[in-house]
Amino acid sequence: MPATPVTVFRKNPADPKGRYQEFTVDIQPTQTVLDALHTILYEQDPTLAFRRSCRSAICGSCAMRINGRSRLACNTQALDLFRRDGHLLVEPLKNLAVVKDLAVDMRGFWRSIRAVRPSLVERQGEVPQTHYAIPGKRFNPLKIVSDCIMCGACLSDCTVREVHPGFLGPAALAKAFRFVGDPRDGATRSRLAVYSEPNGIWDCDTCLMCNEVCPMLVKPLDAILLMREAAIENGFVKGMGPKHALAFYETVERTGKLHETSTAIHSLGARFFSPGNLALTARTVLRGKRPRLLAPKPKGLAEVRKLVASVHRERYRTVP
């Protein structure tokens, strides 16, 4: 399909607000969005800025938003997307400042990566002369994170980072799990303690965007949830996050269903009775949301408890 319209976000120091510019690009079948950007750079506008290097989806340079979603430009077939959506819109990653056009300032991303202490901590006295004789399958849990190429797509589409810039974000927490789940690492407990602090695993709102957009099929959310379980197992239960999870769990196990009032009281503790929260509760009740204070025990509670126990056993098999 020759002459395809491509809209590109432009911004430079002289134009700090930025604008959208439309190009008409001759895009051939099997050409990628990166090919289209190169055509623009070489034939129409040598001022266009973007990052790229390997053009085979392994270096992570060319993550950008294409038709509203963060992807790698190099492995995104341009015409497929154009046919599906009727347009091609290329913008820089979100949640990071734009340096120029499609190139963002990645320093915020790398700061988060560094914050999780991303390197193996040796166990005192257990370092082998040659290599660790640990069966391969014990590394299997790491497969959900180890292909991460640090492109920043997940951080860009992270709905928490958008409103809470301190949040470490999916890529950094995936990197954290790469060590929490490593049988060689000697700092599992201290890692879980640190990751349980504010800005860490409990600040994720489990929206699933990170799993959804990752071009390498990494699952940061799964890693975050596994670390939450491991943190609770290791006794790191301070804060609203773990309290909420535990209260949720406890009420389901005890009553067979979610008891919202007691979950709220357990999660918030004394804060439940703060004027602000009581006012919110009152408004909620007035609007018609009235959780029952005393719920009858449902039938099949024994079955529910059996299920809970079995899920518990299964899940923890994958957590060190």
Binding site: S119, V127, T130, H131, Y132, A133, I134, P135, G136, L142
Partner: peptide, 14 residues
């Protein structure tokens, strides 16, 4: 390996 590289290994850890 000691630095943390995740080699593909067999069941015995080789």
């Amino acid at each position: 390996d000691r630095m943390g590289c995740i080699w593909t290994r067999d069941d015995k850890g080789n």
